[in-house]
């Protein structure tokens, strides 16, 4: 599989999550490369690590406000830190699920993990350029970052 179709898979997974779980479509912005400095990290980040034929990290990072409104849309009243982590982890889960399904045996995909806080840095290999796919939803802005070599 080409990097292009792999990214397509991840983007489709995130969009599908918005369509089905949140029941309100998100819009994909123009993807770009994070050059020089690491891509922006928002309040909550759900990520999967991939090894095998390709190595790297894929993560969905979103601000707290966005996640809270998403929870509301999902009829959830508890906006606690734990719930916000759950939600972002859920998105990472769909990334992982789709990756497993589509990429098959050539990939080893970690179980999703969640980090909170916009000051965290997410490690990636210095010789790769992360591809940032902006995900816009309502007035909010999240990023899907694919960093695979």
């Amino acid at each position: 599989m080409s990097l292009q179709s792999e990214i397509g898979t991840f983007v489709a997974a995130v969009l599908n999550y918005f369509d089905t779980a949140v029941q309100q479509a998100a819009v994909v912005g123009t993807p770009y490369l994070a050059l020089g400095k690491p891509p922006e990290v928002f309040d909550y980040t759900g990520m999967i690590r991939i090894s095998g034929k390709r190595k790297g990290v894929v993560y969905f990072t979103a601000p707290k406000g966005m996640l809270s409104v998403m929870l509301m849309r999902m009829q959830e009243t508890d906006m606690s830190d734990a719930n916000l982590r759950d939600l972002v982890g859920e998105v990472a889960n769909t990334l992982s699920g789709n990756a497993r399904k589509d990429f098959g045996r050539n990939f080893i995909i970690s179980t999703p993990s969640v980090v909170a806080g916009s000051s965290t840095t997410i490690g990636y290999s210095p010789d790769t350029r992360p591809i940032v796919v902006p995900i816009d939803w309502r007035a909010y802005h999240a990023n899907l970052v694919v960093c695979l070599n």
Binding site: S2, L3, Q4, I7, G8, V11, V27, V28, G29, T30, P31, Y32, L33, R129, I131, V133, P134
Partner: peptide, 16 residues
């Protein structure tokens, strides 16, 4: 839409 730019950014990466 934004999705259409995925091939572009991948090729951009390759070109870099």
């Amino acid at each position: 839409d934004g999705n259409d730019f995925i091939p572009i950014v991948v090729k951009l990466d390759e070109l870099m």
